[in-house]
């Protein structure tokens, strides 16, 4: 049931996002769009409540409960950044506004990557706290092995992301000499780039 709920929350996330951005930029109803975007955290609350309810009803703790905790952790750590990033791309593509991008080169990029990594640390901390709460709630060491392994997974991901952020300090991307990078940083709006979806 938890897997189905995670899928429903993920689908709901994108539906709310598309509806919110559609109202904001296609229908020119920014307040309605903002209200829809602000509904996103409600999905996480529903997931949290149902996960707790599932455990309370005697469900065997397994990887799905761990995945739910990580999903909620990601939303706390990176949800705002993700929605803001998508909003910026929607404004660029649908409204013709210049694309505001993160710094791409040098120490400014390294500082940006460190901030993003702090979001991952927050996500790992939230997921660990939720998993620990579930472990205390179940209170049976033989049944919580999978939840403990998800705590390890969360910190492993945070560690790998920390190494990625560290590489920007050790080997910073250099600004191109022809000034191409600075033009892109300024967000000229002419650039149509590939966007990960």
């Amino acid at each position: 049931m938890i897997v189905a709920l995670i899928i429903a929350c993920e689908v709901g996330f994108w539906v709310l996002l598309a509806a919110g951005l559609g109202f904001r930029y296609l229908l020119r109803m920014p307040r309605t769009g903002l209200a829809l975007l602000l509904c996103e955290p409600v999905l996480e609350v529903v997931l949290l409540v149902v996960t707790a309810w599932d455990l309370k009803n005697g469900a065997e703790p397994d990887w799905t409960h761990g995945l739910a905790a990580l999903y909620i952790g990601y939303t706390v750590g990176h949800g705002h950044r993700t929605v803001k990033w998508l909003d910026g791309h929607a404004a660029h593509r649908l409204d013709g506004r210049p694309l505001v991008r993160a710094p791409r080169y040098g120490p400014a990029r390294a500082r940006h990557e460190t901030k993003v990594w702090l979001g991952t640390l927050t996500a790992a901390a939230v997921a660990t706290a939720l998993l620990q709460a579930a472990i205390w709630y179940v209170d049976d060491p033989s049944r919580v092995t999978s939840l403990e392994s998800w705590q390890y997974t969360a910190w492993r991901a945070a560690g790998i992301h920390g190494l990625i952020a560290l590489t920007y300090w050790l080997w910073p991307r250099k600004t191109p000499k022809d000034g191409e990078g600075s033009a892109k940083d300024a967000g000229s709006g002419a650039e149509r780039e590939r966007v990960g979806r």
Binding site: R81, I160, H161, T167, V195, G196
Partner: peptide, 22 residues
């Protein structure tokens, strides 16, 4: 293969190098 992809949290190509080393 993910050199030109733009994501909000990580840069896939840089993450790829780190994952290869690890």
């Amino acid at each position: 293969f993910a050199g030109g992809v733009d994501l909000p949290v990580i840069t896939p190509s840089r993450a790829g190098v780190v994952l290869m080393v690890l």
